[in-house]
Design a protein around this nucleic acid. Structure first.
Lengths: 365, 365
DNA sequence: CGCCGACCTGATAACGCTACCATATAAACA
DNA sequence: TGTTTATATGGTAGCGTTATCAGGTCGGCG
């Protein structure tokens, strides 16, 4: 009476063994196996060993899907980044993961590639797979914000990094770009510059860029004129991620073509600044003797450009740590009490003076 | 007789609505809702509309965990990267996602941060959450390979990028670094260089680095001596991700301190090359008049260094596309026939000549 | 001796979804 | 009329876990 046309395979290798497989093989109840695997509840020493041997033998790993479905949490945190090439992203992730790993959470990274559709798709994927929370570091867009609202209403714990979005249930971590921009500009002024360009933004679309606001504030505070022709930048929001050497190159060229070019220029970020230096070299001008250049972010190569770049350092890893900590607070609070207070963390930037800045060469006027 | 102390809430906002919630509210069976949501099976127009209205109303999204558990696939592909800062990683991901998105797969990225433990943790996370397949682009390690083997034995479809690991069930995509290294070196020789350094590796530990092997082969083919003192590099495998400007800087300094320094140097990657150029500028030497420099990878900034860097371009996005396509083939074949043939894709690199290379300035000997 | 509490194990019922089978109606064909 | 086919809906049974309860044994204590 061998009624099983598909006999129990001796070694069903390839098919994932389940709790039940282990239980049968060890001659115990599934529940007991569960207790051994999760190390909770009472299990006698003998039983524990017996089960553990079988677990090893079949190389059993619990099915995370089933576990998460039952437990109603995945121990997974989603990270949404604008792109990946960015050194900023890398350091942020390093900080985030430092905390998450220590607390037993895995993290899945998604990118938006600066596309609204991709951002949506990523949020969807993270939400649908029931990430316990998400850290969002993409740049602000109206539709993006709308999506975030919906997720928050679904009680998805969320922390934002460097991005504006006011919501009672969403924490925010950022660096004080405004102050950083202010300090850098103040420094340029202090060493004698009076015409200072800004590359990578324009008066029109720069409202949201805090480092640019800092630049403007410094000009005003020091009674320098805010001249629109000194602020250059393609308005194209698209482009290849961390925008960009080419922006910097073109922008500098434009500044140099002015009737009265600036003696110093502030790049929206280090890559812009590097592009600007390249344009200067191409034109036969020296940095900093002819034009001083300042960047922002202090990416690793900034110390190795020719000349090494003066820039504003932001504590990126620390932003990651803080974001992760706040998120886990929210995640772990969400099983329990009511709404938690909203946190807003604003870390300090500081100027790193290298050799791309100096007083204007006196001559040639 | 209100026996429900926790009455059915009118608007259970915050709690995720389920299929059953929708079904009840719409007055139909859960199965029907499922059919509407997944757009399969027969559903009358009237019913479809009724259900869809409720779906919108409650803002229903299927629980991916439950769905995946039942369907036995997640529509998620894992991507394991060595680190994130790397422009290579960024472009690879771009290529991968281009394919995956079009085929309805989401992708979750994990990083190893060059740590074996983190690599394991990431693989575990992806496996436990039952990714349908993974693309692995981390560098080879013995323990890493062992882990990969185990996953392959569990029938997890896998494709490797630029990494050595022979297994009948694992495809591999790479660029021909060997040939790229060969071409670049040949070019340096063709413009008159006879002493060419290599920065970022040593004869001892360079066995696995194909671009370095290409360099060696070119030297031999052109009857140039292979001098160990010309190959410099810290053996430290650790370090901050894409290694590194500092390696390049230190390496070049070392080469310059030789009794007879090279007239050209090949950087293991563009960042190494950039570091080397920085060292030359610091020393008051000109590129390429005193020393020519070649990099590898053609990262975006390579076109904007001073001078712009001659380097070897590898088709990174295309590697991503190919890897994703091969992986999906495997994933979709795994529901069905037996083992599939193994593919190995080896794409061409090509030399990009910019201004960091040229004949040695005749003088000064 | 009876009862309590600590210890140990197992059965049962979900978690939210969908594959599969069963049923039902209506139209289409012989 | 009976049989098939396309259309339309519902019921049932899991996917692989774990929370919860229910039942054991055993020693200790009144």
């Amino acid at each position: 009476m061998t009624n099983s046309h598909r006999a129990k395979p001796e070694k069903d290798s390839g098919r994932h063994p389940t709790l039940v497989d282990i239980a049968e093989r060890a001659g115990v109840a599934p529940m007991t196996v569960s207790r051994v695997v999760n190390e909770n509840g009472y299990v006698s020493e003998a039983m524990r060993e017996k089960v553990q041997r079988v677990v090893k033998e079949l190389n059993y790993h619990p099915n995370g899907l089933a576990r998460s479905l039952k437990r109603q949490r995945t121990q997974v945190v989603g990270i949404l980044l604008p792109d990946i090439a960015n050194p900023f992203s890398a350091e942020l992730v390093r900080g985030i993961q430092e905390i998450l790993l220590a607390r037993g959470y895995a993290s899945f990274i998604c990118t938006s590639e600066r596309s609204v559709e991709r951002e949506q798709a990523s949020l969807r994927a993270l939400f649908d797979h029931r990430a316990d929370g998400i850290i969002v570091a993409t740049r602000e867009t109206p539709t993006g914000n709308e999506w975030l609202s919906r997720l928050v209403e679904r009680n998805l714990p969320m922390v934002l990094v460097g991005r504006e979005f006011r919501h009672a249930q969403v924490d925010r971590v950022t660096a004080d770009h405004q102050k950083g921009g202010y300090e850098a500009t103040k420094y340029l002024i202090s060493i004698g510059h009076k015409r200072i360009g800004f590359i990578g933004v324009s008066l029109a679309n720069g409202k949201g860029l805090r480092r640019f606001q800092g630049y403007l504030a410094a000009l005003r505070d020091h009674k320098l004129p805010v001249e629109e022709e000194l602020m250059v930048g393609t308005d194209a929001v698209s482009g290849p991620g961390y925008s960009t050497q080419n922006d910097g190159y073109q922008g500098m060229k434009r500044l140099l073509s002015l009737r009265k070019p600036p003696t110093a220029a502030f790049g929206r970020n280090d890559f812009t600044a590097i592009g600007a230096m390249c344009a200067l070299h191409d034109t036969g001008l020296a940095v900093p003797e002819d034009v001083s250049i300042v960047g922002f972010d202090n990416v690793p190569i900034a110390a190795y450009t020719s000349p090494p770049l003066t820039t504003v350092d932001q504590p990126t890893v620390e932003q990651g740590r803080q974001a992760a900590s706040l998120l886990l607070e929210r995640v772990e609070a969400s099983t329990g009490s009511g709404p938690r207070a909203r946190y807003e963390v604003n870390l300090n930037c500081h100027l790193v003076v290298r050799q791309s800045t100096g007083p204007k060469r006196p001559s040639r006027g």
